[in-house]
Design a protein around this nucleic acid. Structure first.
Lengths: 108, 108
DNA sequence: CTAACCTATTGACGTTTTTCTATATGAGTT
DNA sequence: AACTCATATAGAAAAACGTCAATAGGTTAG
């Protein structure tokens, strides 16, 4: 098990603003400057209520963790969720859940 | 969605040492001082290679996040995985995975 | 080519986290 | 009661993190 890589993914997930950004990517389809797929930094920035550099910084962390993919089209950078990091996290979680007490594991 | 609570769980998961401790709890059944179920601090400490107070600190974070339950029996504190925090994390992850691109979602 | 615009990077500052040593708490033992 | 052992807490130092203002990079529009 790759503890370092997995920890990096969870660490990226462990911030309220970044979680909010991911949730936004997961739900918002239409956005201010989205011509095609994805959402640009300005949209995320508005949702988070943070400055532009801070927003950019958070998105970079998500990209580095493999949770988000960034695509540059013209002036804008579009973000989409990436299954790569999410699967790393889920694999680790499932291994732990398989060993956790049986009580109420299906309460999802 | 409870971003703060979920972030707290992910933050607890986002550390190599804590991940290693959780993995240890998930796999190790027999331990130095375990008379029944669970593993005591001294076992975790040996696995992590950290000082006793630091180990105790990490375990407290895991307990606070609902990932681990601590039970005091006599002199020892026994730790077991708790489904509570794990399910919070999985619920959030599943919501994101459901919205992620379909490509290779089943690669678990 | 210049100007305007979106995004990324840099530098700085305050806060949080990680880690240790030293000490306290609390339970069993003699 | 005094002692020992396992764990928790306090305090402090170093490192990492989150944040913003200022600036740089790169793209489109005029």
């Amino acid at each position: 098990m790759d503890f370092d890589g997995t920890a990096m993914v969870f660490k990226a997930l462990g911030d309220t603003h970044r979680l909010r950004a991911l949730h936004f990517l997961a739900t918002a389809d239409t956005a201010c400057c989205s011509t095609g797929q994805g959402v640009c930094t300005c949209d995320v920035q508005e949702v988070l209520g943070l400055s532009q550099p801070t927003t950019s910084h958070h998105m970079k962390i998500l990209v580095d963790a493999g949770l988000v993919e960034a695509e540059k089209r013209g002036k804008w950078t579009y973000y989409t969720l990436s299954a790569r990091g999410l699967l790393i996290a889920r694999t680790a979680l499932d291994a732990l859940l398989a060993a956790a007490p049986q009580r109420q594991k299906e309460a999802v």
